[in-house]
């Protein structure tokens, strides 16, 4: 009995640093955010308790739903491009030759650039007056007047941002896919070849199923990242036109900082976190089912 209690205490002592870390950096901020969501607070004046008003206000807030809808659209559009594109590039570059290694390095390079820096870079590339994108399209005879890529048309703006983000993060998925493909024992592939399987048959029936856990992991990371998109839209479109490209996090930011409505921003954050949690649960369930 005594020994059992002593072992428990030792176990708790081992766990203490990690538990303390989680309590200080995760649990406390979360509890504080819940508290904040139940108050109106501008930082400049004393907080006032408003109960669930901030949540009910969010449900009546058209801009919140516009932002959420746009964020989902962005996520639905960009995720397949990142997964399929990353996987195709990984298939092309998985074998270790000099040229393929070089290609992998080039595709991966933008991943190490900050998202803010890459967004500014693409903002200038898409500039209607001095941007290289319009200049190239004009020189190729594809357009006869500059395209207004950013902040004028919602769909065009969305696609322009998607292009910039795909350039920036495609290499991340590619690298993980390459690692997963390279981990497949060569004998399996070779025996399939001996059995007369074509390249695409091997990809479809062998490589893809064996790398499915990685595909699902990259999809999960990509979906969560896209649902939390902020920097690229903040810098490239500023939410324009008419707030239609203001993502959910952008709207949380606007309320929390420039507008100094911390309580409302916290309530929006919690709603967004709940939505992401639902997506994550669904994806995890799908991942489990596929691995059975």
């Amino acid at each position: 009995m005594y020994a059992s209690k002593r072992r428990s205490r030792i176990g708790l002592a081992y766990l203490a640093p990690a538990v303390l870390f989680v309590l200080v950096f995760t649990a406390y901020p979360f509890i504080r955010m819940v508290w904040l969501s139940l108050h109106n607070w501008s930082l400049l004046a004393e907080p006032t308790y408003v109960g669930l008003d901030n949540f009910s206000r969010a449900f009546d807030d058209d801009q919140f739903w516009t932002s959420l809808k746009f964020t989902l659209t962005y996520t639905i559009l960009i995720t397949p491009i990142l997964i399929v594109g990353g996987y195709l590039v990984a298939l092309l570059t998985a074998p270790n030759t000099v040229l393929r290694r070089l290609t992998r390095t080039i595709v991966f390079l933008p991943v190490v650039i900050g998202l803010g820096a890459s967004s500014l870079l693409w903002y200038w590339l898409f500039s209607p007056r001095s941007g290289l994108v319009n200049a190239a399209l004009t020189d190729l005879g594809l357009i006869d007047k500059p395209v207004l890529w950013l902040g004028v048309d919602t769909n065009v703006s969305n696609w322009a941002v998607i292009i910039s983000v795909v350039w920036k993060v495609l290499g991340f998925g590619m690298l993980l896919f390459v690692a997963a493909i390279q981990a497949i024992p060569a004998e399996i592939s070779e025996s399939a070849m001996v059995d007369g399987a074509s390249y695409w048959q091997r990809v479809r029936r062998l490589i893809l199923p064996l790398t499915m856990p990685t595909v699902l992991f990259v999809t999960l990371v990509s979906v969560i990242g896209s649902l939390l998109a902020f920097d690229q839209f903040f810098l490239m479109t500023a939410g324009q036109p008419h707030n239609e490209t203001a993502t959910s996090v952008f709207y949380v930011y606007l309320n929390s900082f420039p507008f100094l409505r911390l309580g409302y921003g916290a309530a929006l954050s919690l709603l967004l976190a709940a939505i992401i949690l639902v997506f994550t649960i669904i994806q995890t369930a799908l991942a489990r089912r596929s691995s059975l």
Partner: peptide, 19 residues
């Protein structure tokens, strides 16, 4: 007015006249 002005977020505002 230059139609490109519709996309002007202020980032290139200071350079416009210098063009």
């Amino acid at each position: 007015i230059d139609p490109a002005a519709q996309a002007e977020t202020g980032e290139t505002f200071a350079e416009v006249f210098g063009s």
